[in-house]
Structures are given as structure tokens and as C-alpha cells.
Amino acid sequence: MPLFTIVAGARPNFMKIAPIIHAFQKRQKEGLDVSFRLVHTGQHYDKKMSGDFFEQLSIPDPDANLGGGGGTQAEQTGAIMVAFEKELMENRPNLVIVVGDVTSTLACSIAAKKLQIDVAHVEGGIRSGDLSMPEEINRMVTDSITDHFFTTSEIANNNLRKAGIPEEKIHFVGNTMIDTLMAQLPHFKKPEGDIFQKLEPKNYFVMTMHRPANVDQEQSLKAMIDAILEGTEGLPIIFPVHPRTAKNLQNLGIDAPNLHMCEPLGYLEFNYLVKNAKGVITDSGGVTEETSVMNVPCVTLRNNTERAETIHLGTNELVGTDPSKLRPYLQKIMRGEWKQYQGIPLWDGKTAERIVDILIHSYS
């Protein structure tokens, strides 16, 4: 009986692994002789960043929690590798499944390969071309030692082909984030609190910012917030704030009556707000995928993106990190002239089933 170890550690991972777990459980109920272990690396370890997701996404409690959170990137990588190596030696699987591009992805793929265990990378082949992003290094290193690449787009397929990856290792399956989005759409719920109760559908913005280029330089952050406040013309802006960003904003004394900062929200609550927003302002890659499928205007405050399909076929536009470039994009949203979602191939809610069927066929 093949054993697959599924790894998750940071908030974006949970949306990506949930449908894979559900697809394995479905095959088990159908009588297939297959088993899996869920390993939580502990990279994100507070309740809102981790625990809520298990409940909301119907993910079982992990079989192991490596407790690898905290410290510098190198310390975190090392701690996860040491703990995951021990986990693999005690419960050796046929294959390790890593997702996305976080520290856990890199650390666990290296630990597995050094023990001669196959690795499957869900979201393989994604590239931004920006080596100043830790995520880009994580992607490149993981893909250099991966055995099975499960890709989200033809762009990712071509990136892998250019790197010399054999065609038989590339599996174009779609996007598990969208599996989760489609499955959870009926369960979205308005967050509790006076701020949220007063919101009118399509009459507010949602904002997320966490990348160092946007939030670590205080004057740049102030200029960007000022540009956003000006361009949104007094409409409410809901801003779930990363702790580091909150501290920087506090130092700047930014205070506007329509800027509502709140703690990070659960998956169902956050996407309720996104689905009903007039527009989204973000520097997150994952949010651009969800806004595209929900046909919500999205502006990305970055100079590059690893998810180019959200620009070509989705509702995303790459604005950059210069606040002076933002206004025309926000004006377009305010006028209701934003482009519509064109449909991205295989983003149909069935990606995880394709992944699991390929793995079962390969290892049975």
C-alpha cells in the first residue's frame, strides 16, 4: 500500500492541501488501498494563521507538528529540515507532496531527497524572475530536485521545459487553490463586527500588503497608503494587517476614517469580503488567483508576478510599487470599466482529483 506524506506549514498551504486530502479520502472510501500522513511544519503557528484553517477547510488534525516556526529564514529552514528528517525516518513514505513556495516547501523537499524519497511539487514551474523574493529561491531549488511537477498553467509548463525538465515529469492539472475556492464558495460568511456589518456590496475595497518592498520603508508605505486613500474616493477600505505592517503604520500615525485595519481574517470571512468588494488592492500572488475566478477587479502592488495568467486571462493588473502609477487603475475600477475574467484552463475545481489519480497510478 503506497504511503504519501503531505506537507503544509504556512497559511497559503492549507488552501492548497485541503482538496488533495479530500481527494485521497474519496479514493479511500471507494476502496482503494492508499494512505497518507499530514505533516504540519509549524511555520505559521498562531490560531488565525493556522488553526482556523483546519476547521474551516475540513482538514484533519495533522499526524505530526514539527514546531518549526520563528527565527530567521535560515533558522526556520534548518529546524524544519531536522524535524522532518526524523519524521521521514520514522514514517518513510513512497513520496512527499510539497505545495507552493514557502520555507517549508524548500526545507521538506531537500530533507526528502537526501533520504532518496521522491518529491511532488504542486505549483511547480511558477516563476517571477525576481531573486530578491525568498519565494523565488524556494521555487527554483524545489523544482531542481522534484520528481513530479503539478502545474497550474501553460506558462509554468514552458518554464520547466526551458529548464530541461522531461515532458513525462510535467503534469498540467490546474490549481488546487481554485478547488478550495469553488468548494467553499457556498460557505463564505460575513465577518463579525460593526465595521463589516455596515459594508455595502460592491461599495468598498479590500487591501492586503505584506511584502518588505511595500511595508518596510515607512515613507514609501505612507506614500502608497495616501495614494490608495485618494484613489478610492472615500469608500471604506478593509485592511487585514500583518503584525509587522501594523507596527509600521502605527509609527507613521496613519489615521483615516475610511481605512479600517483589522486582524487577519479566516478563509471564509476574508473571501466573503473579496467576493463582494468593488476592488482588491494587494501584493499577494494567491489573492490574484481568487479575485480572477470571482471576477473581482484586482491591482497588484508589485513589479513582477509569478502568476502571469491572472493578467492575461484574469482580472489582475500589475501596477508596481510606485504610488504615482496607482491612480488611473483605481479610477478605472471606480468607473466600472475593469476587464472581465476570461477563464483559465483547468481552473475548474477538479485539480486535486487529477493529482491524486496520477500519484496512485504512479505508485501502485
Score class of each variant (00 low, 15 high):
residue 257 P to K: 10
residue 98 V to H: 12
residue 6 I to Q: 00
residue 360 I to H: 10
residue 143 D to H: 02
residue 275 K to H: 12
residue 341 Y to P: 08
residue 65 N to Y: 01
residue 243 P to G: 10
residue 251 N to C: 00
residue 114 K to G: 05
residue 111 A to V: 08
residue 109 S to N: 13
residue 346 L to M: 12
residue 102 V to L: 06
residue 329 Y to A: 08
residue 214 N to P: 08
residue 243 P to R: 10
residue 257 P to N: 06
residue 355 I to E: 06
residue 42 G to R: 03
residue 93 P to G: 11
residue 310 T to P: 05
residue 185 L to S: 06
residue 5 T to N: 14
residue 261 M to F: 02
residue 106 L to P: 07
residue 28 Q to S: 03
residue 295 N to T: 04
residue 117 I to F: 02
residue 43 Q to C: 12
residue 107 A to Y: 04
residue 344 I to W: 05
residue 302 R to N: 08
residue 154 E to G: 14
residue 159 N to Y: 06
residue 182 M to S: 03
residue 196 F to D: 07
residue 222 K to Y: 14
residue 282 T to V: 04
residue 161 R to V: 09
residue 63 D to Y: 11
residue 294 M to G: 00
residue 28 Q to N: 01
residue 126 I to D: 10
residue 142 T to C: 12
residue 321 T to N: 05
residue 204 Y to N: 12
residue 193 G to S: 13
residue 174 G to C: 05
residue 69 G to E: 14
residue 31 G to M: 13
residue 17 I to V: 15
residue 252 L to D: 10
residue 220 S to N: 12
residue 303 N to D: 14
residue 228 I to W: 05
residue 202 K to W: 13
residue 332 K to F: 02
residue 295 N to K: 11
residue 331 Q to Y: 04
residue 342 Q to M: 13
residue 322 D to L: 04
residue 83 A to Q: 13
residue 131 L to Y: 14
residue 357 D to Y: 01
residue 233 E to R: 09
residue 73 Q to N: 14
residue 3 L to N: 13
residue 185 L to G: 01
residue 318 L to S: 05
residue 95 L to M: 09
residue 26 K to P: 01
residue 363 Y to L: 14
residue 290 E to L: 13
residue 133 M to L: 12
